[in-house]
Amino acid sequence: MTISSGRNAAGERRTACPRCGTVFGCNLSGGCWCNDISARLPLPTNDEDCLCPACLRAVADAARRTADDRSKTSDLSKS
């Protein structure tokens, strides 16, 4: 859910996280805080907007744990 369709002077839009409702700034044109998250996640789907920093970190951590679990399982099957 986008709070405002306008952008501030920095090109940032205010939006609410679809998971927890936290209002935060999003700047897809560059310089956004989400660029600092080192995970490679798919773009939002099902009309879901950008996630807030806390929810995005939680999704990234869960994806990392899943990848680690798959790697461990693959290593065990090679033994």
Results as ranks from 00 to 15, higher is better:
residue 1 M to H: 10
residue 1 M to Q: 04
residue 2 T to E: 14
residue 2 T to Q: 11
residue 3 I to M: 11
residue 3 I to D: 14
residue 3 I to Q: 11
residue 4 S to C: 12
residue 4 S to Y: 12
residue 4 S to K: 13
residue 4 S to R: 13
residue 5 S to M: 08
residue 6 G to T: 14
residue 6 G to K: 14
residue 7 R to H: 13
residue 8 N to P: 05
residue 9 A to V: 03
residue 9 A to N: 03
residue 10 A to F: 05
residue 10 A to P: 01
residue 11 G to V: 03
residue 11 G to H: 00
residue 11 G to P: 04
residue 11 G to F: 03
residue 12 E to Y: 00
residue 12 E to R: 08
residue 12 E to P: 02
residue 13 R to L: 13
residue 14 R to M: 13
residue 16 A to G: 09
residue 17 C to L: 08
residue 17 C to D: 10
residue 18 P to R: 02
residue 19 R to K: 15
residue 19 R to V: 11
residue 19 R to L: 10
residue 22 T to V: 15
residue 22 T to K: 15
residue 24 F to T: 01
residue 25 G to L: 13
residue 27 N to Q: 09
residue 27 N to A: 06
residue 28 L to Q: 11
residue 30 G to M: 01
residue 30 G to L: 03
residue 31 G to P: 01
residue 32 C to D: 14
residue 33 W to Y: 01
residue 33 W to C: 00
residue 34 C to T: 06
residue 36 D to C: 03
residue 36 D to P: 00
residue 36 D to N: 06
residue 36 D to K: 07
residue 38 S to G: 10
residue 39 A to H: 03
residue 39 A to P: 01
residue 39 A to N: 06
residue 39 A to D: 03
residue 40 R to L: 04
residue 40 R to A: 09
residue 40 R to N: 06
residue 42 P to C: 02
residue 42 P to V: 00
residue 43 L to D: 10
residue 44 P to T: 05
residue 44 P to Q: 03
residue 45 T to A: 12
residue 45 T to W: 05
residue 45 T to R: 11
residue 45 T to L: 07
residue 46 N to P: 02
residue 47 D to M: 02
residue 47 D to N: 10
residue 48 E to A: 07
residue 48 E to V: 06
residue 49 D to I: 08
residue 49 D to W: 12
residue 49 D to P: 07
residue 50 C to R: 09
residue 50 C to A: 12
residue 51 L to Q: 01
residue 51 L to W: 02
residue 52 C to H: 11
residue 52 C to E: 06
residue 52 C to K: 07
residue 55 C to S: 01
residue 56 L to S: 07
residue 57 R to L: 12
residue 57 R to D: 10
residue 58 A to Y: 05
residue 58 A to N: 04
residue 59 V to Y: 06
residue 60 A to W: 01
residue 61 D to T: 05
residue 63 A to P: 07
residue 63 A to R: 02
residue 64 R to T: 09
residue 64 R to K: 10
residue 65 R to L: 10
residue 65 R to G: 07
residue 66 T to M: 09
residue 67 A to P: 02
residue 67 A to D: 08
residue 68 D to L: 14
residue 68 D to T: 03
residue 68 D to S: 12
residue 69 D to W: 04
residue 69 D to V: 08
residue 69 D to S: 14
residue 69 D to M: 14
residue 71 S to G: 05
residue 71 S to C: 06
residue 72 K to T: 08
residue 72 K to Y: 13
residue 72 K to W: 11
residue 72 K to F: 08
residue 73 T to E: 15
residue 73 T to Y: 14
residue 73 T to M: 11
residue 74 S to V: 07
residue 74 S to W: 11
residue 74 S to E: 15
residue 75 D to M: 06
residue 75 D to T: 00
residue 75 D to R: 09
residue 76 L to S: 02
residue 77 S to M: 04
residue 77 S to P: 03
residue 78 K to M: 05
residue 78 K to V: 05
residue 79 S to Y: 05
